[in-house]
Design a protein around this nucleic acid. Structure first.
Lengths: 236, 236
DNA sequence: CGCGGTCTGTGATGGCCATCACGTTGCTGC
DNA sequence: GCAGCAACGTGATGGCCATCACAGACCGCG
């Protein structure tokens, strides 16, 4: 739990290209990390729970994977997003100091840094040029949420699942690997449809060689097919 | 169209409490306005069109009312939000300089200021303290979008329409007035349901004295009813 | 190896809601 | 006042998809 031996060099090179922290200078980043506490999470363990009103920190993911989810009034789970190392989550409540509207939990063994709100604000203020980067990143997320709303409203199951799977594609590994080994229930909660229908769609797609399955793992084989589906719906 | 005679005093007092610009000092605000061009819009006239890739400006609403909408792949309209005087819109594309993902058009005679991206960024940088306010406002919007996604996924027609109408309630006028005189089609596009079902729900609610109708205008009479519906769904 | 638990496949059923269709109202401009 | 148009009311129909139900597959574990 000693945080002073975090190697900031490693950290910086590992920052996600779209991380809020990318905008900070190495000096500020080092300051920030000095004020952060490291925590390790086993799979399933939550670091932020929906409803908490002590939302005065954000979470920076060092390794592993996180999911951001909320429980709807009817009790079902909605997965808003998944995160990879180098990304910052929980900034909404940190920035506006409201209650947590979503939970964040680990989907694999992970380690995170807990960044107090105050330190983050100070770091940004100390480096005004970083502000543009922070705003740009916030804007990018709003753009993505607009897409999700549009998708929910106008598309049927297949395009929605296609979008979800494309968002899960592991760009680094290159072939059709998905990140986080999602179960069918996870895919359903992510795309907004029932688990049974995920199963039906996957079976159909396998028959068309759009995907391949090895055990419970999925591989995208016809990415173009999913992309046209995601963009134009069933009719296209 | 001479913009140098805009009275910044009036403007500042008219700023929405949650405006991005609220965070600026009067000096920066004055600079900003000096670089802005004023435009007048008749109802239905668009100031931003979905797909434009010259998204290097934001729009500040002086008077009137705007709607932010997008056309889905299937051709139907989705209304993402309405805006009142004092609010800033179009910042997403301005901040991340991507293409416009939504259109903005007037729903009543309106006048707006067109703020170039560069000037906005300069104003913010000149006043680092304002950064916190800007981020806070962006965070607030993301929070609201999370709610919309949850609403779309888990609630049936009635709660969704209830939420839409509560968002349209005119807090200033106090009684049950709605802003922007929305038609049933507008309500449908805003809440995500078909116009016919808006009609059916409104008829039912009128019979229960939840709303009252005078001609085509709507008045909320039982706000509590709509709020419990919006929060807990049909079952509550 | 057997055993509870989670994950998965697949049919049957029904409800919610979009769509179609068409009639009605009400406003606008001539 | 009346033609034309936009907004509104309301039934009928059907499709999509959530839900229920249950069987089989896979997995860690004692």
């Amino acid at each position: 739990m000693d945080t002073h031996n975090i190697r900031t060099g490693d950290l910086i090179s590992g920052l996600a290209s779209d991380s809020l922290l990318r905008a900070l200078e190495p000096d500020q980043l080092a300051d920030l990390l000095r004020a952060a506490r490291k925590r390790d999470l086993e799979p399933g363990k939550a670091i932020i729970t929906q409803g908490d009103d002590t939302g005065d920190f954000a979470v920076f993911l060092l390794s592993g994977g996180l999911k951001i989810s909320m429980t709807s009034a009817s009790g079902s789970e909605i997965i808003l997003n998944y995160c990879s190392p180098g990304e910052l989550v929980g900034e909404i409540a940190m920035l506006d100091s409201g209650p947590r509207t979503a939970s964040v939990s680990a989907v694999m063994p992970s380690s995170v840094l807990v960044l107090p709100s105050q330190t983050f604000v100070e770091a940004v203020l100390a480096n005004p040029a970083s502000v543009v980067g922070v705003m740009r990143e916030l804007a990018r997320r709003m753009r993505q949420m607009n897409l999700i709303i549009e998708s929910d409203r106008t598309f049927s199951m297949a395009p929605r699942l296609a979008r979800a799977m494309l968002r899960l594609l592991d760009e680094e590994r290159g072939d059709g690997h998905l990140r986080y080994n999602p179960s069918q229930s996870d895919l359903g909660a992510f795309a907004g449809l029932a688990r049974e229908n995920v199963s039906r769609l996957l079976t159909a797609w396998e028959a068309q060689s759009v995907i391949e399955r090895k055990g419970r793992a999925l591989f995208v084989r016809d990415r173009d097919y999913l992309e046209t589906l995601a963009e134009f719906g069933d009719e296209g």
